[in-house]
Amino acid sequence: MTQDVEMKEQPAPSNSVPSSSPSTLHHLKEIASLIETGAYDREARRILRAIRLTMALRRKLKASVLSSFLSFALTPGSEAFTRLSSYLPKEDENEMEVDTATSTAQPPAKHSLPELEIYCYLLVLIFLIDQKKYDEAKACSSASIARLKNLNRRTLDVLAARLYLYYSLCYELTGTLSEIRSNLLALHRIATLRHDELGQETLLNLLLRNYLHYNLYDQAEKLRSKAPRFEAHSNQQVSHGLLLSFSLNCKFHS
């Protein structure tokens, strides 16, 4: 009997967003908290989990949500905030996603962590690619890589590897993949000096893909023959590397 009464007392669904259903902005703030914890505790696995959670939200990202998140995660008026905001289209105020449940509990960050700043670059870049705004995505990816060069923190390695992938993708989508070959080589040298194995592995695969895209098989084979082997692999990069190696073997020995 008690159960029947409780079921009858449940409120009827309305057209407004129910408070029991966390908004996309709310989820992004939780992810930001996860990244901050990972950065302070130096636990890359937390940041990796943050990326996976972000991919699950990918289809829900809107310009209004990202604008609100940038205001939360970055210092308003900062170089990163101004740059990233410029890539987002302006939307009607009525479409802005309001997150009153967490706005008072989680004030905007005063001094953003580098990990959180790079995460914001990644978010905006994903959004631009999905919106097929490839020229803007290309500019955003180049800006993110320039920023990464000045940051040497192992807790950034997971985020950096993902940015390298999208950086290469943006130039491939705009038909300008050859423009970044020398930069990929430079990034690979930087990753080697910093003992960033995930970055080295990711950039090696991107370089091989770059060479194969332009049928530069001799250069690709030379690069692969000198490449080190890593013990701590990313499953995604292992699969990608094996596919590229197979393709190179077929082309080089045909």
Results as ranks from 00 to 15, higher is better:
D196S: 12
L242E: 11
E221T: 14
S225L: 08
F246W: 07
I190L: 10
S178V: 13
L173D: 05
R229P: 06
N183A: 10
T176K: 15
D218T: 15
L165A: 09
S245M: 09
L185M: 08
A232E: 12
H195F: 13
Q200I: 01
N235Y: 07
Q236T: 15
L208S: 00
N152W: 04
E221P: 08
L173V: 07
L193M: 14
G175N: 05
T174V: 09
L248S: 03
L193E: 13
Q200H: 02
L198G: 01
L198D: 00
T174I: 09
Y214P: 13
N152H: 08
K222D: 12
L193R: 13
R224V: 07
A220K: 02
L187K: 00
L206C: 03
S245H: 09
Q200P: 01
T202I: 03
Q237G: 01
T192H: 07
Q219A: 12
R154M: 08
T192D: 10
Y211I: 03
S245G: 10
R162G: 08
K222H: 11
Y167R: 02
N205W: 01
L193Q: 13
A160I: 00
S225N: 10
H233G: 09
A161S: 02
L163P: 07
T155D: 02
L185N: 05
S239Y: 10
G175C: 05
L169H: 06
R209N: 13
E221F: 10
E172H: 11
E179H: 14
A186D: 05
A191N: 03
D218Q: 14
D218K: 13
T155H: 04
Y167L: 05
Y171V: 02
L244E: 04
R209I: 07
R209K: 11
H195E: 15
Y167H: 06
G241V: 01
A186G: 05
S178R: 12
E221M: 14
G175K: 06
E201I: 06
L184I: 02
H188S: 08
L169M: 07
A220D: 00
T192A: 12
R209F: 10
L151S: 01
L204P: 03
L244Q: 03
G175R: 07
V158Q: 03
L187N: 00
R194G: 01
L244C: 01
A161I: 00
L165D: 11
G199A: 07
V158H: 02
R189N: 11
Y211W: 05
R194F: 02
G199V: 04
S247H: 13
E179S: 15
G175Y: 06
L184Q: 03
S247D: 12
D157Y: 10
Y217S: 14
Y171Q: 03
L163M: 06
F230I: 06
A160T: 00
L216N: 08
T174R: 10
L173W: 11
L159G: 00
V238K: 09
T155V: 05
L173A: 06
S168V: 14
Q236S: 15
S234E: 03
H233M: 12
S247L: 15
L243V: 11
L177W: 04
R162K: 09
I180S: 05
A161T: 00
K222S: 15
T176R: 15
N215G: 12
V238M: 09
E172M: 10
V158S: 04
R209W: 08
N210M: 06
N215M: 12
L206H: 00
E231W: 13
F230E: 04
Q219Y: 09
N215K: 11
L203C: 00
L208A: 01
L206R: 01
E179Q: 14
E201Y: 04
L151K: 00
N205C: 05
